[in-house]
Measured scan of single mutants.
Amino acid sequence: QNEKLANELKSLLDELNVNELATGSLNTYYKRTIKISGQKAMYALKSKDFKKMSEAKYQLQKIYNEIDEA
């Protein structure tokens, strides 16, 4: 289960640069939040902690959705 979550989180991290570029014309909230979420996700992957990875995955998905809707 950890392996599956780690792969999903890696996949979301692969999209980080594209989504970060998409924040160029948006409010600074999005820029700041996506950077923080990305850092948390990288830390969670290194720690291999299921709870941290779950939270990081949720945060990344949430900010990606917010950027898409903005």
Rank of each mutant, 00 (worst) to 15 (best):
Q1F: 09
Q1G: 07
Q1T: 09
Q1A: 13
Q1R: 12
Q1W: 10
Q1H: 09
N2H: 13
N2D: 07
N2R: 13
E3T: 08
E3N: 07
E3Y: 07
E3W: 09
E3K: 07
K4C: 08
K4E: 09
L5I: 07
L5K: 02
A6H: 06
A6L: 08
N7C: 13
N7M: 13
N7Y: 13
N7P: 02
E8V: 04
E8G: 03
E8W: 05
E8D: 08
E8T: 04
L9C: 02
L9S: 01
L9T: 00
L9V: 02
K10C: 06
K10V: 05
K10G: 03
S11L: 13
S11M: 13
S11F: 08
L12Y: 02
L12G: 00
L13T: 02
L13W: 03
L13Q: 00
L13F: 03
L13C: 02
L13E: 00
L13H: 01
D14W: 08
D14S: 08
D14L: 11
D14C: 12
E15C: 14
E15I: 13
E15V: 12
L16Y: 14
L16N: 00
N17C: 15
V18C: 13
V18R: 14
V18G: 08
N19K: 15
N19Q: 12
N19P: 04
N19D: 04
E20P: 06
E20M: 15
L21G: 05
L21Q: 09
L21S: 06
L21K: 10
A22G: 05
A22T: 06
A22D: 04
A22Q: 09
T23A: 15
T23N: 06
T23F: 08
T23D: 05
T23R: 05
G24F: 08
G24R: 15
G24N: 13
S25L: 10
S25R: 12
L26P: 03
L26G: 03
L26D: 03
N27Y: 05
N27E: 07
N27M: 06
N27P: 14
N27L: 05
T28Y: 13
T28K: 11
T28F: 13
T28C: 15
T28Q: 12
T28N: 13
T28I: 13
Y29I: 04
Y29W: 08
Y29R: 05
Y29F: 05
Y29E: 04
Y30P: 01
Y30R: 03
Y30W: 09
K31G: 06
K31V: 06
K31T: 05
K31F: 07
K31W: 09
R32V: 12
T33H: 10
T33W: 14
T33C: 15
T33M: 15
I34W: 03
I34V: 07
I34K: 01
I34F: 03
I34T: 01
K35E: 08
I36N: 05
I36V: 09
I36Q: 08
S37W: 15
S37C: 15
S37N: 09
G38A: 14
G38M: 15
G38R: 14
G38K: 14
G38Q: 11
G38V: 15
Q39K: 10
Q39W: 11
Q39I: 14
K40L: 13
K40Y: 14
K40H: 06
A41T: 02
A41N: 01
A41S: 02
A41I: 02
M42I: 12
M42Y: 10
M42P: 00
M42S: 04
M42E: 07
Y43N: 13
Y43Q: 15
Y43L: 14
A44F: 01
A44M: 01
A44Q: 01
A44C: 02
L45T: 00
L45M: 04
L45W: 08
L45P: 01
L45Y: 07
K46L: 13
K46S: 07
K46P: 01
S47D: 04
S47M: 11
K48D: 05
K48V: 02
K48G: 14
K48S: 04
D49K: 03
D49S: 07
D49A: 02
D49V: 04
F50N: 06
F50M: 08
F50R: 05
F50T: 07
F50Y: 11
F50A: 07
F50K: 04
K51S: 09
K52V: 05
K52S: 08
K52L: 15
K52E: 12
M53R: 01
M53K: 01
M53Q: 00
M53E: 00
M53A: 01
M53N: 02
S54M: 14
E55Y: 08
E55S: 06
E55H: 07
E55A: 09
A56S: 04
A56M: 04
A56F: 02
A56Q: 02
A56C: 03
A56D: 00
A56W: 03
K57A: 08
K57V: 13
K57R: 07
K57Y: 14
Y58G: 06
Y58A: 13
Y58S: 09
Y58W: 10
Y58D: 11
Q59V: 08
Q59I: 10
L60Y: 02
L60A: 01
L60H: 00
L60K: 00
Q61W: 06
Q61L: 12
Q61D: 03
Q61A: 07
K62T: 05
K62L: 07
K62D: 03
K62F: 04
I63V: 05
I63Q: 00
I63Y: 02
Y64K: 11
Y64P: 00
Y64G: 02
Y64S: 04
Y64D: 00
Y64H: 04
Y64T: 04
Y64C: 05
Y64Q: 06
E66Y: 07
E66R: 06
E66H: 05
E66D: 05
I67N: 02
I67Q: 02
I67K: 02
I67S: 02
I67Y: 03
I67M: 04
I67P: 01
D68F: 15
D68L: 15
E69A: 13
E69Y: 11
E69C: 11
E69T: 10
E69M: 13
A70T: 04
A70L: 09
A70F: 07
A70I: 07
